[in-house]
Nucleic acid binder design. Structure first.
Length: 553
DNA sequence: TCGGCCCCTG
DNA sequence: CAGGGGCCGA
């Protein structure tokens, strides 16, 4: 049963600060179907549905009674607000990003640096700039770097003299070559680069069309790939160049290195707080950073890169002239070096607050002082390296961060659970190494999902009131309703997932809760939504076993 | 103090 | 979607 209690406004104003006052008016919607709410008519009720005692616990006990199958109720569903187009602001995803003027500025690199050290610095600066500039800029720079590495300078210069759209065309032609090269490199391996996915391979290269969304996607994917590689090289560079850069003998004959204090200007963002706010930089890095990507022996053989353009010191044991067996050992050894260094830092990392995120000089000798906050923000999972499995599946090992597939999966999970417990998250995302960073990101995702969900609910509820919907029974959520379409577009954009009926019921309940609350004028209370959250959090369903199986997507 | 959540902002 | 601030309960 659903009970309504009359609660003075003055009480509802303070319910969250004095939660015990309303403990007797606890309204439990567990097992409450939409029909219970359907009898509600705002003009008949002078009550308050606030139950705000306690917090929105995500304990599993709110699942009780929720796993029973529910009738769809679809037959009776009516189309609510379907005539209202302005409720749904354009979110069709067709927005085309206009080519940034930055696309033209490919020529700011000074690739004529006649000295290897300067070239390295220039390269690092370009990468850092690429991390902080616009996506289009980054993409162009990455592409530029790629082709300059391949001796395509002349082609780029020719392109830059063309009108903008022709520049893009030209770059896409080059992109096609890059794509071919990447496909060749990735032959026979299952990688995370969406560039190798079929749908991107179908990208046509018709020269007379403006840049299509597929092409932008393709560019973005190349960007991701290249950024990932570049950052990987950066980490490698840091680790490998520290002794070269900063080794200074101590009085006792030991060697002390400190990147944070003496890093070269081009690497200042990794440790020099005076040049760039470390938080800003780590923020940017956290968006693009993946685990240092180790190239497999196959890749190394298939990609005999010319040495000069490689800006970062390459482990000599990984050069292409090394026999494959040795390369495997080299990969293993390099991975172990990463692991050792990362573990060294992780074990000594004490999470510090933002205001204390400056690099600190390690008091120990024989250690390297890399800002632990940087490492923390890099979302570098602790790598458990199994030597035997390393060579077999190094790519899997390197792909422990959250991917777009994980995001898609999380969105689909939202159809079942709006407030997943960390246990559920761990069960459903068991293919990722759970660090605090990963956990926080997943929680944040669901927080964002809820935010969108409740915003839609409030919007449609308010519109129903404006439209003069007098009876809450007139508020239903069917698969054809605008509200469901908006939600489905957000969480199931590809529309390739059968949304459970239960979600429609929960959505309907939520919509009615908002409608009731607004009609009662409860939205004058700044915390009026919390009562609704309290109700909705009890309506989570169990996530199907499929989500807990071994494939993430 | 910490984690979780909401809210706001970009 | 991510970052950050504020709030609250454990």
């Amino acid at each position: 049963m659903l009970f309504f209690f009359s609660v003075p406004t003055s009480m509802s104003q303070s319910v969250w600060s004095n939660s015990k006052m309303l403990s007797s008016s606890n309204i439990c919607l567990v097992g409450c179907s939409a029909e219970h709410l359907s009898s509600f008519q705002p003009h008949h009720v002078s009550s308050d549905v606030s139950d705000v005692s306690g917090t929105l616990h995500k304990d599993n006990d709110y699942m009780l009674g929720e796993s029973a199958p529910h009738s769809s109720g679809e037959a009776g569903s009516t189309l609510i607000c379907s005539h209202d187009r302005e409720l749904n602001p354009a979110r069709d995803g067709t927005t085309t990003r206009h080519p940034s003027p930055a696309l033209r500025s490919c020529d700011h690199h000074d690739w004529n640096l006649n000295n290897g050290h300067q070239a390295k610095r220039a390269r690092v600066e370009n990468i850092i700039k690429g991390m902080t500039s616009s996506p289009a800029m980054r993409c162009t720079e990455v592409m530029t770097n790629q082709y300059e590495e391949k001796g395509c300078m002349q082609e780029n210069e020719r392109i830059q003299e063309l009108p903008l759209h022709q520049q893009l065309e030209g770059q896409y032609r080059q992109l096609g070559q890059l794509r071919t090269k990447l496909n060749h490199v990735d032959d026979g391996t299952e990688t995370t680069y969406s560039i190798t996915e079929d749908k991107y391979l179908t990208c046509n290269d018709s020269p007379d069309t403006s840049p299509s969304r597929d092409r932008i996607k393709l560019m973005a994917d190349v960007l991701k790939y290249e950024l990932s590689r570049a950052v990987s090289r950066s980490v490698d560079y840091i680790f490998k160049s520290i002794p070269l850069l900063q080794t200074s003998p101590n009085h006792d004959g030991s060697v002390e290195t400190d990147l944070s204090l003496q890093s070269p200007p081009s690497l200042s963002c990794f440790g020099n707080p005076e040049v760039q706010d470390p938080d800003v930089q780590t923020e940017a890095l956290s968006l693009v950073m993946q685990k240092p990507r180790l190239e497999t022996p196959d890749k190394l053989r298939a990609h005999p890169h010319p040495k000069p353009p490689v800006p970062f010191p390459v482990d000599s044991t990984l050069q292409e002239d090394v026999p494959p067996e040795k390369n495997q050992n080299a990969v293993r050894q390099q991975s172990l070096r990463y692991q050792t260094k990362l573990d060294t830092h992780w074990s000594s990392v004490k999470v510090r607050s933002k205001v204390n995120s400056r690099s600190v000089r390690s008091p120990q000798t024989h250690t390297v002082s890399v800002d632990p906050v940087l490492l923390e923000n890099l979302c570098l999972p602790r790598v458990k390296i199994e030597p035997d499995s390393l060579v077999k599946n190094s790519l899997y090992m390197l792909n422990e961060g959250l991917t777009t597939n994980h995001l898609k999966k999380a969105k689909l999970m939202f159809f079942y659970t709006r407030y997943p417990s960390s246990l559920v998250l761990k069960m459903c995302f068991h293919d990722v190494q759970f660090t605090r960073c990963i956990t926080s990101q997943l929680i944040k995702w669901f927080s964002n999902f809820r935010e969108f969900y409740y915003i839609q609910m409030e919007k449609f509820a308010r519109h129903a009131l404006v439209e003069g919907v007098a009876d809450v029974r007139g508020l239903t959520v069917g698969r054809e309703s605008e509200l469901f379409r908006a939600l489905n577009m957000h969480y199931n954009k590809a529309n390739d997932f059968q949304v459970p009926d239960r979600f429609l019921e929960v959505a309907e309940i939520t919509l009615r809760e908002f409608y009731i609350a607004i009609s009662l004028g409860k939205d004058r209370d700044p915390s009026w939504k919390k009562a609704i959250y309290k109700v909705i959090c009890k309506l989570d369903s169990d996530v199907p076993a499929d989500f807990k199986s071994h494939h993430s997507g």
